[in-house]
């Protein structure tokens, strides 16, 4: 997948299943927003194949559009409208795409209750707080009872309380009528809490893919070995620390000093990856994690 002059995404293969919450995790600039915009059909890719709900987003028609819900990083639109008025209005467009099994749109009152904005139904949108506004955006994303909902960095700029409220909301949504959710975040903690599966994206490539438990097992199985050899310092990330150290001594004997062996936690791996990525050396980060190849 190419955008502009640089390949921003290479070999990204995402699969989200019905009713599943998939987190696209990665540092800022990792290509999350680009990926999600291509999937939403808002941005053209230069190469590669993309299929969302069985359709290429570049050629997605309005019936396809009606099956998607989109919540972008921050909307400020329709500031003069009242919350319920806007939901009622946007719901109108979805009515022709409803089926007996999946009636569209969602009932406004029900939707406001779901996102906890019943009391703000008549409030002018520009007067909502940041957290309320984002919850309204989620309600708008859901108004067409989507098969697939995109949430792009939903909690950026939230205070801890708003964040907690939002996490509760997403967890409530995930149980909802087979709606698959693809959410992007740069926060590992958030990804672990909210998603069934995490895809780790860095430098435009998927470096890991699995449930939070799987990733934790895979990464924390690793250990970091630090040592010096003839006064020069080394850091290695290895699967079998004991074997590695045994061999190290067998090969270099007395020359080895300052030995230190540490278990690596998932969050440490992620932090290291982000740091490496931000200093422009994401290839080194790939070696460190060593997965996905």
């Amino acid at each position: 997948m190419r955008y502009g002059a640089n390949d921003v995404l290479r070999g990204v293969d995402l699969r989200v299943h019905r009713g599943e919450v998939l987190a696209l995790l990665g540092p800022n600039g990792a290509g999350k927003t680009t990926t999600i915009e291509i999937l939403e059909g808002f941005r053209r890719r230069s190469a590669g194949e993309v299929s969302v709900l069985g359709t290429d987003p570049d050629h997605g028609d309005e019936a396809w559009r009606a099956r998607l819900g989109v919540v972008l990083q921050s909307w400020r639109d329709h500031g003069r409208w009242r919350a319920a008025e806007l939901l009622d209005h946007l719901g109108l467009y979805y009515a022709p795409y409803g089926t007996p099994a999946r009636p569209r749109p969602y009932d406004t009152a029900e939707l406001l209750a779901l996102v906890g904005l019943t009391g703000q139904a008549g409030t002018v949108i520009a007067r909502l707080s940041g957290g309320q506004r984002r919850r309204l955006d989620v309600a708008i994303g859901l108004v067409g009872r989507p098969d697939l909902l995109f949430l792009d960095e939903p909690t950026v700029g939230f205070d801890p309380v708003a964040r907690q409220d939002f996490h509760d909301l997403v967890r409530r949504l995930s149980g909802l009528e087979d709606t698959a959710i693809l959410l992007t975040t740069h926060d590992l903690d958030e990804a672990e809490k909210l998603s069934d599966r995490i895809v780790l994206l860095a430098g435009g490539e998927i470096v890991a893919d699995g449930t939070a438990a799987e990733l934790a097992a895979r990464f924390s199985g690793k250990a970091e070995v630090r040592y010096s050899r003839d006064g020069e310092f080394f850091t290695e990330s290895v699967q079998d620390a004991t074997g590695y150290v045994r061999e190290l001594f067998a090969r270099h004997g007395e020359a080895i000093g300052d030995l230190e062996v540490r278990r690596v936690s998932l969050s440490e791996v992620y932090l290291a990856m982000v740091r490496e990525f931000e200093s422009g050396q994401h290839h080194a980060a790939r070696e460190l994690t060593g997965v996905g190849a």
């Binding site: 808002f42 559009r65 909307w75 639109d77 946007l90 467009y93």
Partner: peptide, 10 residues
């Protein structure tokens, strides 16, 4: 983003 909202709606 009003226009983008329109684009995101069928």
């Amino acid at each position: 983003g009003t226009l983008l909202r329109a684009k995101a709606t069928p």
